[in-house]
Amino acid sequence: MLNTSSNETYEEARRQLQICNACRYCEGYCSAFPAITRLRAFADGDITQIANLCHNCRGCYYACQYTEPHEFALNLPQALAKTRTESWQAHSWPAPLGAVFQRNAVSSVFITIVAVAALMLLIRALPAASGDGFYAVLSHGAMVALFAPLFLFPLICLFVGLKRYWKDIGGERITLAHLKDAISQAATLRNLSGGHGEGCNFESQDRFSQARRHAHHAVMYGFLLCFASTSSGTLLHYGFDLPAPYGFWSLPKLLGLSGGLLMTLGCIVMLTLKAKADAALSNPETHGADQAFVGLLGFVGASGLALYGLGSTAAMPALLALHLGAVAAFFVLTPYTKMAHGFFRLAALVRDAQQRP
C-alpha cells in the first residue's frame, strides 16, 4: 500500500467523500457515486479507486448545495483531480521521470521532439538509405532500431505502474465478465454522458453538452485507428513481403489518414473546451502538463497529415523528422502524462465491476 495516510490531498478528499456519502444527492451521476455509497469509511486505496473513476465532468459540483460559500466548501472534482494525479505519480515507474514531466511539461515535450528529430537528421547524414518514400530518408532497419525501444520501454513502465495500482486498490482476479463490462464503459464513455444522459457541464454550469464526450471519442478512436494503421503496415511488411510506401486505398493509408483527422480535430476541441472550463474545478498544478500533452497528441496527428500531403516535396525529410520526433515524445512520456489515465481508468472500471453487487 502507498503511504498516503498523512497526505493532505487524501485527507481533504476523505473529508469531502464523507460529506457526499451522508448526502447522496448525486448518487446517479456517474460510476464514482455508487462506489462512494457502497462504503462506510474511506481507506487510501478506496480514495485512489474513486478518484480514477471520476471523469471530472463537474455535474456534481454544480448540483451541490455545500460548495462555497457554505462552510463545508466542497469541491469534489478538484479534490479527486488532485488525488488522481498524485496516484498516477505515486504508482509511476521510474517515479523521478513523472515528477520531471509534471514540473517541466512544455520543455519536456519540446526537448524530446528536438532530440529525436536531430538524431534522425544525423542518421540521414550517414550513407544514404535505400528504399522508396520515407525509407529513402531513413531505412526501415533504422526506424525499427530507433522506435522499438521507445515503444517497449513505456509499456514496461505502464505495466509496473498498473501492477502497483491494482495492489493498492485491492484488485482481485480479473474475469472475462469484469473486463467486458469495463471495456464497454470505456468504449462508450458512459460516465461522460451524465446521470441524465444529456452530457456533462464541463464548460458551463448552465449548459449540458456531449461535446467533451465526442472529443474524447474522436481522440481515442483516432489513436486506435493510427495504431491499427501501423499494425497493418507491419503485417504487410513482414507477413506478406509488401514494404511501404502504400497507395491511398491501402489499409495502412486509409486507417492512418482517418485516425490522424479524428485525433487532430478531437485535440483541437479538447483544448478549446479546456480554455472555456473553470480551472478551479481541476488540479491547477497539472493544467500546463495536461495542455501540453493534448497539444502533443494533436501535433502527432497534424504532422502525420502534413507529411502525407507534402510527402513528395522537398519538405518531406524535415516533416518526417518532426513527425517521428513527436511520435517518440508521445511514447516516451505516455506513462507520466494524461495518457496514463486511460490505462488507470480502465483498471478502475474493472475493479468497479468486481465490487458491484
Rank of each mutant, 00 (worst) to 15 (best):
253 K>W: 00
311 G>A: 03
308 Y>Q: 11
247 G>S: 13
285 E>P: 00
198 E>F: 07
283 N>Q: 08
324 L>T: 05
254 L>S: 12
309 G>E: 10
227 F>L: 13
248 F>E: 03
297 L>M: 12
300 V>R: 02
236 L>K: 04
328 A>R: 00
217 H>K: 08
307 L>F: 04
286 T>R: 08
321 A>L: 04
293 F>M: 15
291 Q>T: 02
302 A>P: 07
309 G>H: 11
222 G>V: 04
302 A>T: 02
302 A>K: 04
206 D>M: 05
273 L>Y: 09
305 L>F: 01
249 W>C: 01
318 A>Y: 04
324 L>K: 09
338 K>L: 03
268 I>Y: 10
250 S>C: 02
261 L>F: 10
239 G>T: 06
225 L>I: 00
200 C>K: 06
287 H>L: 04
197 G>Y: 14
210 Q>S: 07
311 G>R: 00
235 L>T: 12
262 L>Q: 01
275 A>E: 15
269 V>S: 01
290 D>T: 09
219 V>W: 01
236 L>F: 11
329 A>I: 09
207 R>V: 12
293 F>L: 06
230 T>R: 05
248 F>W: 15
232 S>H: 13
303 S>A: 11
205 Q>Y: 00
219 V>N: 06
245 P>Q: 10
261 L>V: 15
236 L>E: 03
335 P>L: 04
266 G>A: 07
303 S>N: 09
285 E>Q: 14
235 L>P: 05
262 L>C: 14
306 A>L: 15
240 F>L: 10
316 M>K: 11
323 H>F: 07
313 T>L: 09
238 Y>S: 10
234 T>A: 14
270 M>E: 15
310 L>C: 00
216 H>N: 13
304 G>R: 09
338 K>W: 03
204 S>A: 11
334 T>K: 01
255 L>F: 08
220 M>S: 11
301 G>K: 13
271 L>R: 12
201 N>D: 09
240 F>E: 04
260 G>M: 02
309 G>T: 08
241 D>N: 15
204 S>M: 10
328 A>G: 15
226 C>D: 02
339 M>N: 11
213 R>N: 07
211 A>Q: 04
265 L>H: 00
250 S>M: 01
329 A>M: 06
202 F>Q: 00
283 N>G: 07
279 A>E: 10
196 H>M: 03
292 A>T: 02
